[in-house]
């Protein structure tokens, strides 16, 4: 954990001098993305948030998924654990979902189905798998192995009030996209905008970080949207009650707590 904190400090230090850094050689695409992953998926030692996902179809039909998400970073090589408790839709209230994410192998996933009182292990599948039927994939939610793509820093560009690096990533191993463009904030290293291109090099998906807030000093994307440009289907995700460094116990992330969600964290 100390190491993690050290990284964050180092990052902050690297970013703060701003102009001076600008005048020098820009960092490599790989470095920028590594910092970005850190800021976007690994912020804090752990994290808790109430997540409201709104799925809107092209015809305007809306579906809602509301969940409490607990995330804990493990010490070893980027391993993370996610615990999710579903509040909505109504007929799935009480379903819980546990994901253990490894850097170099498939996730482990368990799901508790209260209606039949059963915990079932789910097999992970390809990278393009949708997260709970939304326009976000599991990779969009928890990150993709950086070495699975080749990256190039194309240019720097302003998006709104932010100076961004524009990085092109070309998939080396199977992905939902063939090519991806990311606009990464020079200061927070959060992705501000992303464009995904399919095998035919047609734009099919766009990401935008719509709201960014400081939570306990950590820049956090509190509202984000993914639009499927081919179907017009949209998913908006709003984070509330975000908190970092809560000291969430490691054993929360176990089958026992799937059946009996921890009251302390899940209301």
């Amino acid at each position: 954990m100390l190491k993690r904190a050290a990284v964050v400090i180092a990052l902050t230090a690297a970013v703060l001098p701003g102009r001076q850094v600008h005048a020098q050689e820009p960092p490599s695409a790989g470095t920028i993305l590594a910092k970005s992953q850190q800021a976007f998926f690994y912020a804090g030692s752990d994290m808790k948030a109430r997540v409201l996902m709104t799925l809107t179809s092209a015809s305007g039909q809306k579906r809602v998924r509301e969940l409490t998400m607990l995330r804990r970073n493990e010490a070893r090589g980027g391993e993370q654990k996610y615990f999710m408790y579903f509040h909505q839709p109504a007929d799935v209230k009480g379903m819980t979902f546990l994901v253990v994410k490894y850097a170099r192998k498939d996730d482990d996933r368990w799901l508790f189905v209260p209606a039949i009182n059963m915990v079932k292990r789910l097999a992970a599948r390809d990278a393009s798998q949708s997260f709970v039927g939304s326009d976000f994939t599991y990779e969009d939610v928890s990150g993709r192995d950086l070495e699975a793509d080749g990256h190039t820093l194309l240019r720097e560009e302003r998006v709104g009030s932010r100076d961004c690096y524009v990085i092109e990533s070309i998939a080396r191993s199977p992905a939902q996209y063939k090519r991806k463009l990311a606009w990464i904030d020079r200061n927070s290293f959060l992705p501000i905008k992303e464009e995904y291109f399919d095998a035919k090099d047609e734009l099919f998906k766009t990401f935008s970080a719509d709201e960014v807030a400081e939570v306990g000093g950590v820049p956090t994307v509190t509202k984000r949207t993914m639009v499927n440009q081919k179907t017009g289907h949209t998913t908006t995700v709003v984070f509330t009650d975000v908190a970092y460094g809560l000291g969430i116990d490691a054993d929360i992330f176990s089958e026992r707590y799937l059946r009996e969600p921890p009251r302390k964290w899940v209301q």
Binding site: F86, P89, D91, V92, M95, F97, L111, V113, P114, A115, I116, K120, L122, A123, R125, Q129, S130, F131, V132, G133
Partner: peptide, 12 residues
């Protein structure tokens, strides 16, 4: 049960 099955399916 139907609802949770469908949700489960939708997750995978």
């Amino acid at each position: 049960i139907v609802g949770q099955y469908l949700f489960l399916f939708g997750m995978a």
